[in-house]
């Protein structure tokens, strides 16, 4: 495996800029997820790494080699497509064999690599079936085996799980992650599903409108989003626009006073719903009275919109545990909510 260096990559389709100023270093054996809403440029970037799309500007290195102008079939990347893209006229074993034949691997070596690859994804017993005789999850496993059999320098996956149903999605995701870690694969995983990205990646790049918004570990991005888009896109957050009136004292436009950690230029603050307690918690320096505007029962938790006195809305999650089960939470009922100043995230704008 190899590291990947992407430097100031740009792609323009006619006048439309699909990707701009994209720079990223992927370490050897690291899994980076590209996450963002549809149309933000994830696929375009991945396909430039694979060589299907020629960049307008910038460069891509795989290992020490500049591959920016190398044709697809000489890049030695292993790609997994959303709709599996298996060869319909070939059996499972022939599908896996294809890439090996193209790389002039023959005889015993080829047979043993086919066997290893199929074994890896637990598809050995299906080797003589045709793709149409397999379920979606099985087809995607074969596609993974086919891509890995050629021992690619980089493993590329474009929304590989989005055609699978929810349960299978988690199963195949965990399989991909454990393969990736055991084999030390340098991997780019494109998805629009944040839970998927958080669960699978070492680092993730959040993209919007053809630009990277933030790159970091799942925990860094979730706990310290660098801007409003990232905070809003990843998980839930209640936002308050306003100003610092004194150090550590924020006043929202609707007049709510909130204690925050000290910051420089602050135009907006946010708080995650799971960081808010019901009742006046002893460690919380922000305590508010409010009225429940709506409460949605989501099984493991209750999702509450709380209207504060000035009209601001606070979104909080009450876990459905033994202590909260008896609390009456109905629209219109009063509720006290509290949170720590250190849990507030500050944004410049």
């Amino acid at each position: 495996m190899s590291k990947v260096s992407i430097n100031k990559l740009k792609k323009q389709f006619g006048d439309a800029v699909a990707l701009e100023d994209f720079s990223l270093e992927i370490a050897d054996g690291e899994l980076v997820a590209f996450l963002g809403p549809s149309g933000c440029g994830k696929t375009t970037t991945l396909r430039m790494i694979a060589g299907f799309i020629e960049p307008t500007a910038g460069s891509i290195h795989i290992g020490e080699t500049d591959v920016t102008n190398l044709p697809v079939h000489k890049r030695n990347t292993g790609m997994v497509f959303q709709r599996y893209a298996l060869f319909p006229h070939m059996t499972v074993a022939q599908n896996v064999s294809f890439g090996l034949e193209m790389h002039n691997v023959s005889g015993k070596e080829r047979d043993s690599r086919i066997a290893t690859a199929l074994d890896m994804v637990r598809m050995t017993s299906f080797r003589d079936r045709y793709p149409r005789q397999l379920s979606g999850g099985q087809q995607q496993r074969v596609a993974i085996a086919r891509a890995l059999a050629i021992q690619p320098k980089v493993f590329l996956l474009d929304e590989p799980l989005s055609n699978l149903d929810a349960k299978l999605r988690v199963e195949v995701r965990e399989e991909i992650r454990s393969l990736q870690q055991n084999l030390g694969l340098t991997t780019v995983f494109v998805t629009h599903d944040q839970e998927e990205a958080l669960a699978i990646s070492d680092r993730m790049a959040i993209m919007y409108n053809g630009r990277v918004q933030q790159i970091g570990s799942p925990k860094e991005l979730y706990d310290s989003p660098s801007n409003h888009f990232v905070a809003d896109f990843l998980g839930r957050m209640s936002f308050f626009k306003g100003n610092l009136v004194a150090n550590g004292r924020f006043v929202s436009e609707a007049g709510t006073n909130i204690q925050v950690a000290s910051g420089q230029k602050v135009g907006r603050i946010g708080i995650r719903p799971e960081r808010i307690n019901v009742g006046a918690h002893p460690e919380s320096d922000n305590v508010f009275d409010g009225w429940v505007e709506s409460a949605a029962y989501l099984g493991s938790l209750i999702d509450i919109r709380l209207r504060l006195q000035g009209g601001d809305i606070l979104n909080l999650h009450v876990p459905n545990n033994a202590s909260s089960a008896n609390t009456a939470i109905a629209p219109g009922s009063p509720l006290v909510a509290s949170f720590r100043s250190s849990d507030c995230v500050l944004f410049a704008e």
Binding site: N76, F81, A85, F87, P88, R146, I150
Partner: peptide, 14 residues
């Protein structure tokens, strides 16, 4: 599906 031929190219086929 155009991605089938792309898969072949990706696997090293001219």
């Amino acid at each position: 599906d155009p991605s089938i031929e792309e898969a072949a190219r990706n696997l090293g086929a001219s």
